[in-house]
């Protein structure tokens, strides 16, 4: 199997954490993978994106029009990274609205939900991953596999992250 994911956000949103989760998932299933991060000189607030290539690949960068899935932790960063998406690909994005495109777009204003107290804003990355699990049919990993990976990275925060993940999945299904 081959699956290419772009995660787009800004510094501080936990883009790299998602790379780690997905890379551990791939490892557990015996899939080959390569992933890389794109960021400049900023630490907080600057553009950050990650490319994750699951399967038989040889370089970590996803080229234009190649990604199966775009996870956007921020609306503007998601729009900026649209050129990587293939026709008919999937977009799961933190946004109140999103451009009409020839792709499966699932937009949720997660910022608003965080403000309303549905989940802790610091867990936005996990919430978006939960939405992805709920809504993207061909996503290569299951909820349990994601939970195992989250626990492996940081057992201490695992219960909070599980809670956020489950809330996202519940929200995504409704």
């Amino acid at each position: 199997m081959k699956y290419q994911i772009v995660v787009a956000g800004f510094g501080g949103q936990g883009v790299v954490f998602l790379v780690k989760v997905l890379s551990i998932c791939a490892g557990k299933k015996g899939y080959k993978f390569l992933g890389t991060e794109n960021h400049g000189m900023s630490q907080r607030g600057g553009s950050v994106s990650s490319h994750i290539k699951i399967g038989d690949f040889y370089n970590p960068l996803i080229d234009l029009a190649q990604a199966d899935l775009l996870i956007g932790l921020d609306k503007d960063e998601a729009i900026l990274n649209l050129p990587y998406l293939k026709r008919g690909g999937n977009v799961v994005v933190n946004a109140d609205e999103f451009p009409e495109i020839d792709a499966n777009v699932f937009a949720v204003d997660a910022n608003k939900l965080a403000e309303e107290g549905v989940f802790d804003a610091k867990g936005l990355n996990v919430f978006m991953l939960g939405l992805t699990l709920a809504r993207v049919k061909d996503f290569p990993f299951s909820v349990d596999e994601v939970k195992e990976a989250i626990e492996e990275i940081n057992p201490k925060f695992a219960p909070q992250n599980f809670d956020i993940l489950e809330k996202a999945i519940e929200y995504g299904k409704n």
């Binding site: 600057g46 234009l64 029009a65 960063e77 729009i79 900026l80 050129p83 495109i101």
Partner: peptide
């Protein structure tokens, strides 16, 4: 060219690199 973008956003907002808040 199979790497030509399918989606090209009009006037995407870009973030300049910046000092942390």
């Amino acid at each position: 060219n199979i790497y030509k973008p399918v989606f090209t956003p009009e006037n995407p907002k870009t973030r300049k690199p910046n000092l942390c808040p």
